[in-house]
């Protein structure tokens, strides 16, 4: 690994820009994300910035159950993000459908079957500290070149 690669890897860890998408969440997880930019949690110390467009971002933060309507949207957002990129799934919904599982409008699959998820943050909803740790872990994966996007491209 050359010095330039090393500097680039550190920059990737220190500058994770996050894009949020709600794929059918009850809004509980989204409310727990908002405090991250408040004085108490201040995610900017980790270099986190929230951006409105996936094209600017490194980390896709997905909250909520996958629905028939949101599946195409979340795939499109993931494809619009420039590599290297990571996906953080918030709470129980993306993993299992949570209490909405079995509803006719909810897809009976995990987010992992749609886009490659790197970090799962458990909880319903997860606490802001846990979300921040999830973002920090995804950023560390970006530094190590170990996100599933990076592994997939290297293979």
């Amino acid at each position: 690994m050359t010095l330039l690669d090393r500097v680039l890897a550190v920059a990737r860890r220190r500058s994770p820009w996050v894009c949020r998408v709600n794929t059918g969440s009850c809004n509980g997880c989204d409310i727990e994300v908002t405090p991250l930019i408040s004085p108490r949690y201040d995610a900017e110390q980790l270099g986190v910035q929230f951006h409105g467009t996936p094209k600017h971002c490194d980390i896709l933060l997905v909250s909520g159950t996958l629905t028939a309507r949101s599946r195409a949207a979340v795939v499109s957002m993931w494809e619009q993000m420039p590599s290297p990129k990571a996906v953080v799934a918030l709470g129980s919904c993306p993993a299992s459908g949570n209490v909405f599982a079995g509803s006719p409008v909810v897809l009976g699959c995990s987010l992992d079957e749609v886009i490659p998820v790197d970090v799962w943050v458990p909880g319903c909803p997860p606490r802001p500290q846990a979300i921040l740790e999830g973002i920090a872990r995804a950023a560390a994966l970006l530094e190590a070149g170990k996100t599933r996007d990076q592994i997939g491209r290297a293979a």
């Binding site: 500097v7 680039l8 550190v10 920059a11 990737r12 220190r14 500058s15 820009w17 408040s38 004085p39 201040d42 900017e44 110390q45 270099g47 910035q49 490194d58």
Partner: peptide, 18 residues
Amino acid sequence: RIGPPFLQPAFDFLKLVG
């Protein structure tokens, strides 16, 4: 808040370029 680390804009730029 405490705010971003000193080298943050440089990190942002390097990351975007990479």
